Computed example of a mutant assay.
Amino acid sequence: MRIFTKYVLSELLKVFLLTLGVMTLMMFVGLLGKKAVDLGLGLGGLLQLTPYVLPEALQFTLPGALLLTVTGIYGRMAASNELVAIKSMGISPMVMVWPTLILSVFVSFSAVWFNDLAVSWGRQGQERVILESMEAIAYGQLRVKGSFEHGNLTVHVQGVEGRTLIEPTLVIREKGKEFANIVSARAAQFAANVETGQLVLRMQDTDATGQLDIVAPGVEEYVFPLEELLGSRNKSRSPSDYSLGEIGPAKAKELDTIHKVRQDMSTEAAFAMLTGDFDELSDGAWRSQEKVIQNAEGRLNRFYSEPYRRWSNGFSCLAFAAVGIPVAVMLRKGEMLASFFACFAPILLIYYPMFYSCMVLAKKGSAAPQCLWIANAVLLLIGIYLMRKEVKH
């Protein structure tokens, strides 16, 4: 028995590590290339991004690499009649299956960890590198072209001396507004604040038109959050950016917000009834508080569903392997890609629509977050049924 276990694990690990390396490299290059095009990062910035992008690439490639490996190995075994030979010796083919399922469990735990690492440490690191690179990019473009444009910000200068911008002019465009704010100054300097995720422009002797309409001698600071520079106006951190360890305190914070707002609403209602000010009890008077509660409940639903999403997404590796093994044996194809696509097509048509439908319902609060395991459970049941069928025959 140990000979069969060592043989299967040896074949699996060799092919899996090679496949994972190739697929991760391709995904990694694609992600870096996209960021280089979207953000205009140079070679130095891309090299700094490397460790932070790697977990993001691995969370996508681990399930696919495992499925490709499993379908390839077991398809070749079936095509060369290795499983038939084991049956003829009176040995259950499951001795060739258990090592793969156990390996899939370890890979699934790794996928959960990489998923958590990518959305917390990875994204924060990427934002920090982008911010630091943004300062260098801004100075580089201002020296060469005399202007720098990113997101809703455009800067024009007469010249650059060291780190000092000579007679800079800022054009700040607000989304949905016809006119932009224009700010000019005698001199200015860019500075990146890595801790707060902001790009700060310190301007000397400013003169602003538009909604700002100010003349301010001395030094004025204009702060541009990274979200604004990248064209996003989201002011709150998305629940998908929290690590699993941060989700518990975040849920408590949202619950506390809902409790405080409802408590304030009760107090205000009681006071309005005592004073006879019934206008304060109208629906319009509660609109702002109800919006706060609605936003907090929406974020709370996402916080409740996020751990289930990450764990079920990670354990899709096990579900894919459970289906891939019997399907590859049934097809008896020695080519890796033939078995892979024959197995991946039903997964693409069944698993992912089911998973994302459940995720939408869970985020809206229309279904319990545990429903995110349904797609995995369906694949596991199909895999168990097909395995039992193959073992019997």
Rank of each mutant, 00 (worst) to 15 (best):
V378N: 05
A191D: 10
A79Y: 04
V97S: 03
G151A: 10
I325S: 00
L142K: 07
A180D: 14
E127I: 02
L54I: 14
Y351Q: 11
G159Q: 08
A79W: 05
G44F: 03
N181M: 05
M1Q: 10
G42L: 01
Y7Q: 13
F344W: 12
N115W: 06
F320M: 15
I247D: 01
I130A: 08
K14A: 14
V84C: 06
A319C: 07
L337I: 14
G314M: 11
F278H: 09
A187P: 02
V105K: 01
E280T: 10
Q189E: 15
V84R: 10
T154G: 03
A208Y: 09
L9S: 13
L54S: 12
D277T: 09
W311C: 06
F28G: 04
W286N: 10
D213E: 08
Q204K: 13
L101Q: 09
P326L: 07
E228Q: 11
E246H: 00
L361S: 14
D279Y: 12
N81D: 09
F60L: 15
Y385P: 00
I86G: 03
A342D: 06
M89Y: 03
T275V: 07
P326D: 09
Q370L: 14
G75K: 04
L32E: 14
Q126D: 11
T61Q: 09
P249Y: 04
F341K: 08
K389Y: 04
I382A: 14
K34T: 11
V200H: 12
G276C: 09
S288H: 01
G45W: 03
A319M: 06
L31H: 02
E268F: 04
E82Q: 14
P51G: 06
L337H: 02
L41T: 14
L9A: 07
V119H: 13
A328W: 03
G383Y: 05
A285E: 13
R237D: 08
A138N: 11
M89I: 00
R76S: 13
E127P: 00
Y351H: 11
L54A: 15
A208G: 07
I86W: 02
Q126G: 10
A85H: 03
L58E: 14
L170V: 12
A192T: 09
V70P: 01
V157C: 01
A345N: 06
A85M: 01
T154F: 00
Q289V: 00
E56F: 04
A136Q: 14
K14H: 14
T50L: 08
M203R: 07
E220D: 09
I3Q: 12
I293H: 05
Y222P: 03
F278P: 00
V171D: 13
I347D: 00
V215N: 10
R76I: 00
N81L: 05
K35C: 03
T50N: 03
E161T: 11
I325A: 09
Q158I: 04
L13T: 08
L165P: 09
